[in-house]
Amino acid sequence: MLLDLALYLVTPAPWRHRRLGYVRESILLTSRARRCRRAWAPHCAAARTAMLAAAADLPRRESVIVLGSGGLADVPLAELAARFRSVVLADAVHPLGARLAARRHGNVRLVTVDLVAEAVAALCGPADLTISANLLSQLPIVPLDRCEARGSAVPEGLGGQIVSAHLAALDALPGRVCLITDTDQREEDRAGRITDTLDLLHGVRLPAPFRAWEWEIAPFGEAAANRRLIHRVRAYPDWAAARRAVDRA
């Protein structure tokens, strides 16, 4: 807890992002990634593989932008920096570890942006590859939490609207788009019984993925002694191709 407090105080971020809760969410996620490094390893490896698959056959590799880069646990930064002339890491908060990692590469730039409120298209420009990195399900969290903290009613369908808006923004981008996102959560007890489920995309449905896997995001003892949380993850190295497959069906 003391480490989290220290990180909260020293992590660079605009005051607005602190006020909205983005710094707090970033610190909590970074701390969980550190504690659950072993449980997260298969997920992070699968996500990195999907991102590099998206870049493998591109005819042009001038620029790549990673939306939701966060602490870089699931982002193959060194490989992307070696393959592209320019790498942009975009998120509301860039933890200190990510900032130090970015400094090792002369072609990596950090952009601090509220990916809910600010236009993705204006941020990205004509990137050859845009990666939405385990971001989609995260976008509604702060806006929904803020409504609850204020004691105000959550606007009906707000979560789904935020998810749909991000997908629409990705659809409008030039170049290739790689989408990696968790879609649903299940809670299990030690006997393997499902005790609860949660739709992380608020009713928005996605096409069949190129690859899917499970992410043990909170092992036993992390969120509760006798419960663990498992997320289902989908990867689309070429999001537009997945969309076209649905249209042809």
Rank of each mutant, 00 (worst) to 15 (best):
S164Q: 15
A133V: 00
T195D: 00
A54K: 00
R103M: 13
A153W: 08
D91N: 08
R176Y: 01
D189T: 04
I141P: 07
D182T: 01
G71D: 14
C178S: 01
A54R: 07
T11N: 09
D182G: 08
E216N: 13
E222F: 08
G125V: 07
I230D: 08
Q185H: 00
A208W: 03
P140T: 05
A90L: 12
G192S: 04
L20T: 00
L115A: 06
L129V: 15
R24M: 14
R234Y: 14
L170K: 02
A191V: 00
D184N: 12
V10W: 12
H202E: 09
G68K: 10
E25C: 09
G221N: 04
A172V: 06
T183N: 14
T112S: 13
V111D: 06
D171Q: 14
L170I: 08
T11V: 07
G70H: 02
V177C: 08
L129A: 10
P126D: 15
C36W: 04
D182S: 11
S152Y: 04
L58Y: 12
W239F: 12
G192M: 07
R150A: 15
A101L: 15
Y8Q: 11
V246K: 10
A225Q: 12
R103P: 07
P76T: 11
T112V: 14
A208P: 00
A225T: 15
R99T: 06
I27H: 00
T130E: 00
L144H: 13
A41C: 09
T49A: 15
R104H: 13
I230V: 15
D145R: 15
P42C: 08
V64F: 05
R103K: 15
L136N: 05
E79P: 02
R243W: 08
P237W: 05
R16M: 11
D247C: 02
R193A: 14
I217R: 10
S26A: 15
A117R: 13
T49S: 05
T181R: 07
N226C: 10
V113Q: 14
A172Y: 13
S26P: 01
